[in-house]
Deep mutational scan, measured.
Amino acid sequence: GKRLNIQLKKGTEGLGFSITSRDVTIGGSAPIYVKNILPRGAAIQDGRLKAGDRLIEVNGVDLVGKSQEEVVSLLRSTKMEGTVSLLVFRQED
């Protein structure tokens, strides 16, 4: 696979993607993946982020050990017109 650095500018329609966690172990944390890209928002305008990408970092914060809720609040904490920096891991087909 490969790592991608993606910067998304948060506009009025938001970042435009949803996340999910897979393989949750009890008391553990699961990897966070991009669930889908919404028809409006920064992600589809940028065009690089894809469903199935694994989020590794948000704005330089390592997501290991973070819950899905914590990751959502990290993403939401970005101000309007601010930039969210994502490091994602993509499995090659």
Results as ranks from 00 to 15, higher is better:
residue 70 E to N: 05
residue 64 V to P: 03
residue 59 N to A: 05
residue 92 E to F: 08
residue 31 P to Y: 11
residue 89 F to A: 13
residue 38 L to V: 03
residue 42 A to W: 03
residue 54 R to Q: 13
residue 12 T to G: 08
residue 40 R to L: 09
residue 42 A to N: 03
residue 7 Q to G: 08
residue 45 Q to W: 08
residue 42 A to P: 07
residue 75 L to T: 02
residue 66 K to V: 06
residue 57 E to A: 12
residue 93 D to W: 04
residue 91 Q to G: 13
residue 82 G to R: 08
residue 64 V to Y: 14
residue 55 L to W: 03
residue 85 S to V: 07
residue 79 K to D: 11
residue 75 L to W: 04
residue 35 K to Y: 06
residue 82 G to H: 10
residue 26 I to T: 15
residue 44 I to R: 09
residue 91 Q to M: 10
residue 83 T to N: 08
residue 59 N to P: 00
residue 22 R to L: 14
residue 53 D to Y: 02
residue 77 S to T: 09
residue 61 V to I: 12
residue 9 K to C: 11
residue 38 L to R: 12
residue 29 S to F: 08
residue 53 D to V: 03
residue 52 G to R: 05
residue 83 T to F: 08
residue 5 N to E: 14
residue 82 G to T: 12
residue 22 R to A: 13
residue 24 V to F: 12
residue 7 Q to I: 15
residue 73 S to C: 09
residue 88 V to L: 05
residue 41 G to D: 02
residue 64 V to H: 07
residue 70 E to S: 10
residue 47 G to I: 00
residue 73 S to W: 07
residue 45 Q to G: 05
residue 93 D to K: 10
residue 85 S to N: 12
residue 22 R to C: 07
residue 51 A to Q: 11
residue 13 E to H: 10
residue 35 K to E: 15
residue 7 Q to A: 13
residue 65 G to E: 06
residue 6 I to S: 01
residue 74 L to Q: 06
residue 75 L to D: 00
residue 50 K to H: 11
residue 12 T to C: 09
residue 63 L to H: 00
residue 73 S to A: 14
residue 78 T to N: 12
residue 31 P to D: 12
residue 7 Q to C: 11
residue 38 L to H: 15
residue 67 S to G: 10
residue 70 E to W: 14
residue 45 Q to R: 13
residue 89 F to C: 09
residue 24 V to Q: 11
residue 17 F to H: 00
residue 25 T to Y: 09
residue 2 K to G: 07
residue 53 D to I: 00
residue 38 L to D: 07
residue 80 M to V: 12
residue 54 R to S: 06
residue 45 Q to F: 06
residue 43 A to G: 03
residue 3 R to M: 14
residue 26 I to M: 13
residue 59 N to E: 06
residue 92 E to T: 14
residue 84 V to P: 02
residue 75 L to N: 01
residue 36 N to W: 02
residue 78 T to K: 07
residue 13 E to A: 05
residue 22 R to Q: 13
residue 13 E to I: 06
residue 89 F to L: 11
residue 36 N to M: 14
residue 90 R to I: 00
residue 54 R to K: 09
residue 53 D to Q: 00
residue 92 E to A: 08
residue 19 I to N: 02
residue 6 I to T: 01
residue 82 G to F: 07
residue 86 L to S: 01
residue 89 F to K: 10
residue 79 K to T: 14
residue 20 T to N: 06
residue 19 I to W: 03
residue 8 L to G: 01
residue 57 E to M: 11
residue 7 Q to L: 12
residue 46 D to M: 02
residue 2 K to A: 04
residue 9 K to Y: 13
residue 83 T to I: 12
residue 86 L to K: 03
residue 11 G to V: 08
residue 60 G to P: 01
residue 3 R to Y: 14
residue 74 L to K: 03
residue 71 V to N: 00
residue 23 D to T: 09
residue 9 K to M: 10
residue 14 G to Y: 02
residue 68 Q to Y: 14
residue 60 G to M: 03
residue 14 G to M: 02
residue 90 R to G: 01
residue 14 G to Q: 03
residue 23 D to C: 08
residue 25 T to S: 12
residue 42 A to L: 02
residue 46 D to Y: 02
residue 60 G to I: 01
residue 1 G to R: 05
residue 93 D to P: 11
residue 56 I to H: 04
residue 50 K to A: 11
residue 37 I to Q: 00
residue 49 L to T: 01
residue 41 G to C: 02
residue 61 V to T: 14
residue 6 I to V: 10
residue 80 M to K: 15
residue 79 K to A: 11
residue 55 L to E: 03
residue 15 L to R: 03
residue 26 I to D: 11
residue 42 A to H: 04
residue 72 V to M: 11
residue 31 P to A: 10
residue 7 Q to E: 14
residue 28 G to D: 06
residue 44 I to T: 07
residue 12 T to K: 15
residue 11 G to W: 02
residue 73 S to K: 12
residue 76 R to S: 15
residue 59 N to T: 01
residue 76 R to I: 07
residue 71 V to K: 00
residue 1 G to L: 06
residue 70 E to C: 06
residue 63 L to A: 07
residue 87 L to Y: 12
residue 72 V to T: 12
residue 18 S to Q: 13
residue 70 E to T: 10
residue 43 A to R: 00
residue 75 L to H: 00
residue 79 K to L: 06
residue 58 V to L: 04
residue 20 T to E: 06
residue 59 N to I: 00
residue 85 S to C: 08
residue 56 I to E: 03
residue 4 L to V: 10
residue 41 G to T: 02
residue 8 L to V: 05
residue 3 R to T: 10
residue 89 F to D: 15
residue 57 E to R: 10
residue 67 S to Y: 05
residue 5 N to M: 10
residue 90 R to C: 03
residue 12 T to Y: 11
residue 17 F to V: 02
residue 87 L to F: 06
residue 87 L to A: 12
residue 5 N to T: 15
residue 45 Q to D: 15
residue 47 G to L: 01
residue 20 T to D: 09
residue 80 M to N: 07
residue 7 Q to P: 06
residue 86 L to D: 00
residue 36 N to Q: 13
residue 51 A to C: 07
residue 28 G to S: 05
residue 18 S to M: 10
residue 11 G to H: 11
residue 11 G to P: 10
residue 27 G to D: 15
residue 9 K to P: 07
residue 33 Y to F: 12
residue 76 R to L: 08
residue 36 N to F: 06
residue 57 E to S: 11
residue 62 D to M: 07
residue 66 K to Q: 11
residue 51 A to R: 07
residue 35 K to D: 15
residue 66 K to M: 14
residue 54 R to D: 05
residue 33 Y to R: 04
residue 23 D to I: 08
residue 8 L to M: 11
residue 36 N to D: 15
residue 85 S to A: 08
residue 72 V to S: 12
residue 46 D to V: 00
residue 92 E to P: 12
residue 40 R to S: 11
residue 63 L to T: 11
residue 76 R to P: 03
residue 36 N to R: 14
residue 88 V to D: 03
residue 61 V to S: 07
residue 70 E to K: 08
residue 43 A to S: 02
residue 8 L to D: 00
residue 56 I to Y: 04
residue 17 F to P: 01
residue 23 D to R: 06
residue 6 I to H: 00
residue 4 L to E: 05
residue 39 P to C: 11
residue 76 R to H: 09
residue 47 G to K: 02
residue 69 E to F: 09
residue 14 G to F: 02
residue 25 T to H: 12
residue 36 N to I: 04
residue 32 I to Y: 11
residue 72 V to C: 07
residue 54 R to T: 06
residue 42 A to K: 03
residue 2 K to P: 01
residue 87 L to M: 14
residue 81 E to M: 11
residue 36 N to Y: 08
residue 73 S to D: 10
residue 49 L to E: 04
residue 43 A to D: 02
residue 67 S to H: 07
residue 91 Q to C: 10
residue 17 F to D: 01
residue 37 I to A: 01
residue 13 E to Y: 08
residue 20 T to A: 11
residue 38 L to F: 15
residue 93 D to V: 10
residue 46 D to T: 02
residue 82 G to V: 08
residue 4 L to P: 03
residue 72 V to E: 08
residue 4 L to R: 02
residue 57 E to C: 07
residue 22 R to G: 07
residue 43 A to C: 02
residue 87 L to W: 13
residue 15 L to G: 01
residue 61 V to P: 00
residue 71 V to M: 03
residue 47 G to P: 01
residue 67 S to P: 11
residue 47 G to Q: 04
residue 21 S to L: 07
residue 31 P to F: 13
residue 49 L to K: 03
residue 76 R to D: 15
residue 6 I to C: 01
residue 76 R to T: 14
residue 12 T to I: 12
residue 29 S to P: 11
residue 61 V to K: 07
residue 63 L to C: 11
residue 17 F to S: 00
residue 48 R to T: 06
residue 53 D to M: 01
residue 59 N to L: 01
residue 46 D to E: 02
residue 68 Q to W: 10
residue 19 I to G: 03
residue 37 I to V: 10
residue 28 G to R: 06
residue 45 Q to E: 12
residue 22 R to H: 13
residue 38 L to K: 15
residue 90 R to E: 01
residue 28 G to V: 03
residue 37 I to T: 01
residue 66 K to C: 05
residue 4 L to A: 02
residue 49 L to N: 01
residue 64 V to F: 11
residue 19 I to L: 10
residue 55 L to I: 14
residue 85 S to Q: 11
residue 15 L to E: 01
residue 52 G to A: 05
residue 31 P to K: 12
residue 71 V to Y: 01
residue 80 M to A: 15
residue 23 D to L: 08
residue 24 V to T: 13
residue 15 L to Q: 01
residue 56 I to P: 01
residue 29 S to D: 11
residue 3 R to E: 15
residue 54 R to I: 07
residue 63 L to R: 02
residue 86 L to T: 03
residue 31 P to N: 15
